[in-house]
């Protein structure tokens, strides 16, 4: 099977991530940041819970087109919880998350690959689910040509990771929410991943990344979530009532 010949590589001026931002606004309710760029994610006074317990409170940030937000914080501080809340998997305890619908592509700790399917089949499945066509760019960006016909179960941990990250390009979504994306990647592939993120940002996308390493991204801001770590149960919790009998 030769997947990369089946798929037409788009001409260079066609943008992988949809049309560039200023001309065609993909958001139903456009908001502009201070620098005049389209706002992708805006979080106000967000409280998140894990396992029924509040872990973060008062989280506040905004990410606009072309921008990367790097989340820092010690283990267990709630980076994963925050990303899952942004992705819509966990409902927020309180506060607002404003994003365009269907803007977020989530990638967690687990690779989400099917061991019995080949690399190409894994990517094609997600292309079909997301209704997108271009998987050639994803294959190029993470150098998966050699692995296309191999089953995901036979890949090394680093190769699996690359395939899992390549899925992000296939989704065609604007905001990447990534949880420790560079785990099991070597230096070369970490650089490759950083280039993919950079290209995504240049193309008008944005990213929220929980990571401990410096990716060397040109337009990135760091958010330390330690100050937001919740110190008490939420006030709405009826069982935390101070005057409880």
């Amino acid at each position: 099977m030769q997947l990369h010949t089946e798929i037409q590589v788009p001409p260079h001026d066609v943008h992988i991530f949809g049309p560039p931002q200023p001309e065609a606004e993909p958001f139903p309710h456009p908001q502009l940041s201070a620098t005049g760029e389209a706002m992708h994610v805006s979080v106000t006074n967000l409280a998140c819970a894990r396992g029924g317990l509040q872990v973060l409170a008062g989280v506040q940030f905004a990410v606009s087109s072309g921008q990367a937000l790097v989340l820092k914080g010690p283990n267990g501080s709630g980076k994963t919880t925050l990303l899952r809340t942004l992705a819509g998997l966990t409902p927020p305890l309180s506060g607002q998350i404003e994003t365009a619908p269907d803007a977020i592509a989530y990638a967690g700790h687990a690779d989400g690959l099917k061991a019995q399917l080949t690399t190409a089949e894994n990517l094609r499945f997600w292309a079909e689910v997301f209704g997108t066509s271009g998987i050639a760019e994803a294959v190029d960006a993470f150098d998966l040509h050699e692995l296309l016909d191999r089953r995901a179960g036979e890949l090394s941990a680093g190769q699996k990771r690359r395939l899992s990250l390549a899925r992000l390009l296939v989704t065609g979504r604007l905001v990447w929410c990534l949880d420790e994306p560079t785990v099991s990647l070597d230096a070369e592939n970490t650089a490759r991943f950083a280039r993919a993120v950079e290209a995504h940002l240049t193309g008008g996308g944005s990213a929220i990344i929980a990571t401990h390493i410096d990716l060397g991204l040109s337009r990135s801001e760091t958010l330390d979530i330690t100050p937001f770590v919740a110190k008490s149960l939420p006030s709405e919790d009826p069982f935390s009532d101070e005057a409880f009998a």
Partner: peptide, 8 residues
């Protein structure tokens, strides 16, 4: 629905 009220 308030547990405290229910308890009393």
């Amino acid at each position: 629905a308030n547990p405290r009220k229910f308890m009393t």
